[in-house]
Design a binder for these strands. Sequence first.
DNA 1: CAAGAATGTCATTGC
DNA 2: GTGCAATGACATTCT
Length: 630
Amino acid sequence: MQVAKKYFTEGLIQLTILLSLIGVRVDIDSYLSGYYSPLIEINLGPSSAYTQTPFHNLRDTLGGYTVHPKCPELDYFFASRRLLEEVRTLGSPRFPTQLNAWLVHQVSPVDKSDGGQPSTSSSEDTEPDPESYQASDDRNQELQRSSPPEPCVSRVITEEDEEDDDVVKEEEESAPVTQLALSSTLEQECVLDGIAALSESPRGPPPTTDFDQHWSSFLSMPVANLDDLDSLVTERLSDLDIDSSSDINLDAALLDAMVTSGGAYDGRQHRPLFRQESTGSTRSDASAGMALGLAALPFASVCSLSGGTSLQSAPGDCLDEAVFDQINQLGLEGLENMDSPLMDSLGSINPDILEDLDSDSGLSLESSSGGPVSPGSSEMSSSSSSCEDECGATGYSSEVDSLPFKGVLDRATMWPRVDLSERVWHDHSYSSSAFLNLPPVTLPHKGIKEEPSSEDEGPTFGQRELSRDELRARAMCIPFSVLQIVNMPVEEFLEIVDGHGFSPEQVTLLRDIRRRGKNKLAAQNCRKRKLDAITGLQEEVDRLHAQRDRLLREKQITAKTMGAVGQQIQQLTRDVLARLRDDSGRPLNPDRFTLQCGANGRVVVQPVRRPAVSTSSSNKTDKRKKGKKQ
DNA sequence: CAAGAATGTCATTGC
DNA sequence: GTGCAATGACATTCT
């Protein structure tokens, strides 16, 4: 077993490092701690979304106990297996994201001395869960017996600040653009220099063979067609032995390609692609497809990674499936324990209380979390002691305490699935990290819950409040938590609603709780998407502004280049014509003649064709006259 | 106490 | 027809 544990631990570390390298957040601790998070922020990127974890999939926890306390190695195995599944569900990595890698290591025997203490290195931000101390002595003993020599889970947080990430991204992104823009500019200036050098040579001494060579190259350009000059300049300059290692258009085209395709080097361009994956939205983004090529690369690497490592987990599929089926069966046993006295107690509910519950208290539901929704911690509360804790020490409102609920508390303790202890605070933040600040399972101190360690740890468990739906559920004696009601699959929900003798009021409440809970998550996702869209659009605006400025600068440089080349051509043309003689032996007038280069390379002196504006107008008038005549 | 942000809830729509 | 995600609109609470 020790070998197996070492194998899985090292495998997890390697996998974590690999995933960290490609920017995937790995939170092993949340898995190893045996909790489940009903609200998982599956991606930390801009389009990350909250998802619900169906409680029937919560496999290795039940009622606060690890499923296989006598085989803790399976925890590691399940953690790695679920981690791989999460990687698969990610689909593709998100690069502009915060990177939190939670590494697991086995504590050396030296650390064993404090093995009994809460050994999370991040204990400063984890407040002790009083309910975790509620575990009975038997349970502690069992855990201690079953646990390997104190495999402590410590967190090694590798945080890569998003700003730093952005800075790096900006550098990577801006560097090629700047370089190219610079090279483009410099090379065009180089062209200008070459032209200037050329312009000096004809004015100098009488024509030489070198001059003729250059001139023949220039003559191949149609003078009248300066629009195509920019495409011909560099080509001809190479013939003129001018140093033009790379031409203007190539750079410009390359720049344009990089700008328009964007995703080739811009990490942000991956986002639309990923957003489509994560949210399923049909948002169309022109750059997404172009970014797909490179986006597929890390994606493929992830796939290959997960695919390769998943082979290791394959042999355990049958095992954990069997265990999970057993868990699912256990989960429904709570309903079997509902008996008629409980149902009879429903009649004793004070209607005033229910009426009060209808007023909007604004209390957040279980997913609100500075106060983590810590369903895991609620699951942690042992079924044998949950009632006293929930109704007494955890500080429920007097309103709830006054409920006739206490009459059925003893009955309630028989329900493993009754979960009424979700942490509900007014934080309204949904940081997934809140779920991680959970105390380790094996905490030896039992009585610590009466003494909150310090006030600066935030709201204590005695100060927590219940959401309206939670209060309603308690008032109606519904043996399910809001989390369970919301997260259970519809088939199971319908089965519970239809087949467990709930009153119509209870059924209505169950449906309302489920609807509200799902809609609340949907609203959170919707708002997050909206903010992401706004952020993405703002970034695109900034990018387009930068692109426009750069293109304007290039345009100015290009115009300057074309003007210089055109002047040079005119000068050369005048020089050539000055050397030619007409039939009478006089120099050709440059204003009346021009040089044309044919396709075969022959240079022909042609009379200048004056703009035939009047001619064309006269043609039109002639046609009109002809038309009238006809 | 007012303003704005954050969040919850309802109604509606489309899949 | 039902379930559900998405979203606008409004209410409530918090800062």
